[in-house]
Design a protein around this nucleic acid. Structure first.
Lengths: 230, 230
DNA sequence: CTGCTTTCGCTACGACTCGTAGCGTAACTG
DNA sequence: CAGTTACGCTACGAGTCGTAGCGAAAGCAG
């Protein structure tokens, strides 16, 4: 790989933000493009092809040429939208994490177990397995990529922890926050623990997440609150 | 990358085990080689060059050609010893984890905090950062590589958890094991939690491991044993 | 010392990927 | 209609990969 070029885009100022802005909302505030609009169908085809190729070939086998061929798109079209494989995969994988939701099942334990199960199911998918750790690895070298990963993938999950906490506080299971920053740090620590542990179990140890394991792990998480451990 | 070739080695039956067997124990059970012995100095030079290049260029920038040049060794010599970049990096990085030790400071809390600090320091090093997640990522696709990673890197750390548990049981802080398999599963879950959480904090969230964070995290781990939380 | 065996460094090779440039054409706007 | 932009296609130089072939060097048995 050559040096990480500054995000120069020959055709357009590049999307630079989250998902590529598909020109489908004509009355949006975005300046109406003048020439031929970018094909939204091509965007979808590219992202789908990326996910499929990721599941089949893995991160190392994924090639911009492959994606272009599979999406029935010229390689140059690919590079007009995404400057590198990393950014492409972030966008292709980010949407997979949208399926994670906080259920509010009536107890903190049940909520945690449900989220862990959802996350485990997501990590069991081949596309996710092939992409997630490789993206994280690239992120350790490229701060800008890490920022994109945080915004597109990590932070949306942190929201789940906050929702679960809030629900538990509304139920009276948890004491309401006294210090704002302390609450923030607690959210961070809980999040890193859940995400890191499940990822390590599935992707590194390579062992499945069973209901029994989820029960034990949740018990560990609830340790500081013995009243919630039946 | 082409298909993951079976480990064919043209010159010798390949090392196939842990570290390359340096021919330094003449009365070992290994059949005494007849021809010119492999240079042990070359092995050390290659592994050192790999760690240096890893710290400078990262995983993606690491090239077999670079390593060979930096180690003042022909590229063919590299391929005679390690069939691919993955295996090379496993051996180059594995020794870094030897510095992790279980201190036995007199209390379970102190022991845990010490190990977490050591692990955090290890993860702060550029070689480790560049290699660990990338290796894990490749391991999700190549079961054989995953086995090598487990044997060379992951399992030695699991030993720390067992030692810490044993010490705490000897001190009377923890109840002795009743069920063998349950104890094993508990070791697994503790290990995945510590390793996964610290890795996620450092490598994904990209935030440092402070003494305060370590204290909070240890408190979370000790949650099920409130008597140990001062 | 002389053969035998194995590794060494070196060069070269075909296959592949990368990211870019140039071109003519297609699509949409005013 | 003209103007603007995206599109598909082809081609390119640079770089990496893993292997093959060669002569030379290093160790060991006789």
């Amino acid at each position: 790989m050559p040096a990480p070029q500054p995000p120069v885009t020959p055709d357009r100022p590049a999307h630079q933000d989250g998902l590529p802005a598909a020109p489908e909302s004509p009355d949006s505030t975005t300046a109406r493009a003048k020439g031929r609009p970018r094909s939204a169908a091509a965007d979808r085809a590219i992202l789908d092809a990326t996910r499929e190729a990721l599941a089949e070939l893995g991160w190392g086998g994924l090639t911009m040429g492959h994606v272009a061929t599979r999406a029935k798109v010229a390689k140059t079209t690919l590079y007009r939208r995404w400057p590198s494989k990393n950014e492409l995969v972030v966008d292709a994988v980010a949407s997979l994490f949208d399926e994670l939701v906080m259920p509010d099942l009536g107890s903190l334990r049940a909520d945690i177990e449900a989220v862990v199960s959802q996350f485990a199911a997501l990590l069991a998918r081949p596309e996710t397995q092939a992409a997630l750790l490789a993206l994280f690895a690239e992120g350790t070298r490229d701060p800008q990529l890490r920022r994109r990963i945080r915004e597109a993938i990590v932070d949306p999950q942190k929201r789940l922890v906050r929702q679960g906490r809030a629900a538990a506080q509304a139920r009276g299971e948890l004491a309401p926050d006294c210090d704002e920053t302390a609450a923030c740090e607690e959210v961070d620590i809980i999040f890193d623990t859940i995400a890191g542990t499940v990822e390590h179990r599935v992707l590194v140890s390579g062992e499945p997440i069973t209901a029994e394991w989820t029960r034990r792990f949740t018990t560990l998480l609830l340790g500081p609150f013995p009243s919630l451990v039946p």
